[in-house]
Amino acid sequence: MLVTEELTRKVADLARLELTDQEVTTFSAQMQKTLGYIEQLTAVNTDGIEPQYQPFEMSTPLREDVVVPRSLDSKGKPKVLEHAPEVLYDGFKVPPIL
């Protein structure tokens, strides 16, 4: 697996990460080395082995769908907005999308 700077830029873009040119160069070399090490996994025969995504088998517990009132601050505003970066009315403000 060859980690080109182009690949690093593409993956960083997918992850919405802004990288400096220096970071692209450094990370590409480091990822090359790490992936080179990880390639040892190809030597393991995993034919017919089910992937394990959790530490052990667990069931998904179900619970009643109960409505819980949202917590409010001392002024009666939703608590989650108390320390929001920018608030507009009762919501979070972001730049225009269109």
Partner: peptide, 29 residues
């Protein structure tokens, strides 16, 4: 940043089976 990039790579289309799925198979072993 390094870890987010590596993780995004391992889950991305074309690499998922070779990296993420393979790693989870060895996890079972």
């Amino acid at each position: 940043k390094r870890r987010i990039i590596l993780g995004t790579f391992a889950l991305s289309s074309g690499y998922y089976d070779a990296y993420f799925r393979k790693a989870c198979q060895v996890r079972r072993l």
